[in-house]
Every structure is written in C-alpha cells, then in structure tokens.
Amino acid sequence: MKAIVRIILLVSFLPYVLLNLKAFGFFGGLGANPVEAITHDTGIWGIRFLILTLALTPLYHYSKQEVLRKLPKPIGLVAFFYVLNHFLCYAIIDQAGDLGVIVIDIIETPYLIVGWAGFLCLLAVGLASFNSFQEWFNKNRSTISGLVYTAAILGVWHFYWQEKVVSYEAVLDSVMMILLILWRLRISTEKSPS
C-alpha cells in the first residue's frame, strides 16, 4: 500500500519536473513569456490536484479501494505545493517581491483577491498538517475538509475570472466542482445527524 502511495506521489510531481526541464530549454522551453508560463502551469496543476483531492472521497465511497483513503492528505499537500509555487512565482518573480506593489496589485485586481483568499485557506491546512499539529488535524477533519472545499471553489473562481474567453478547462473544472459539492451535500444530509 505504502509503495503505491509513493508511486502516485512521484507521478504527481511529474508536471513540476517537466516545468523545470522546460525552464532549462528542454521540450521547446517556456516560450517568450516564461514568467507567465510558470505562473499558469503551477496554477492550473494546483487546481487539478485540489479537485483530485476532493474527488478521492467519492471515489473511495463507490470503489472501496483502500488506497484511495490514504491519498487525500498527500495529494492535498501536492496541490498545496503547486499553489505555493504559483504564489511564489507571482510574488517573487512577477511582482519582483515588492510588497507594496503586491498589495496594490491585489487590491486592484479582483481575481487576485479571490486567489489570495484561497491560498490562505490552503496555507492553514498545510500548516495544520505538520507533525506538531497532527492530533488537531485528525480531530478537526471537517474543518480541514471545509477549508479545502473553500480553497478549491476560490481557486476555480480565480482561474475562471482571469480568462478573457472561458476555456474548456475552466468549464470542466467548474462542472467538477459543482458535482463534488452536490455529492458532498447529499452525503452530509444522508448521514446527519451522525
């Protein structure tokens, strides 16, 4: 079981490895706007892994594959890893680390407020998953899951809102989010009061 989880984890870092190889000129490089390429790539993979994290529970519910029950935390952390890279690329490279500029940019740009809020949600979950908070983390599963849902909703919204014309991926992500939320609501109404 552990081996399978490890392999899945390794695979989930492939997009990051590919991005780094592109930064060094392999696979056609990052193109004329490397900062944008890195920001978009890390952001899109962050959202994909967030949605995957949320999809694991219903997938387990129907398939009863034990391994799926072990995955939400590691895959959630992978999502956090991509989102953190996305945020750092924006803050340190795109905005040159200038805090004053970043604050003004976030205030002036509505989709950045949404993205920033989603990032804070994930940051809280990420910090709570450290070993020293392990007990708290395990006791507050519903808070954690609520934060991840909120982060995913804000993330998809952030992605959707910055596009000039809606892309297939944004539509697909939105549809999956809605389905996941509906499933979650149905399950919680079925179970409650438990």
Partner: peptide, 10 residues
C-alpha cells in the same frame, strides 16, 4: 541564457 544552456544540453 537559460535557452543556451538548454541548447548545449539538448
């Protein structure tokens, strides 16, 4: 510069 490195290696 990065591309040059890439070119040298690829």
């Amino acid at each position: 510069v990065l591309q040059t490195i890439g070119t040298l290696s690829t």
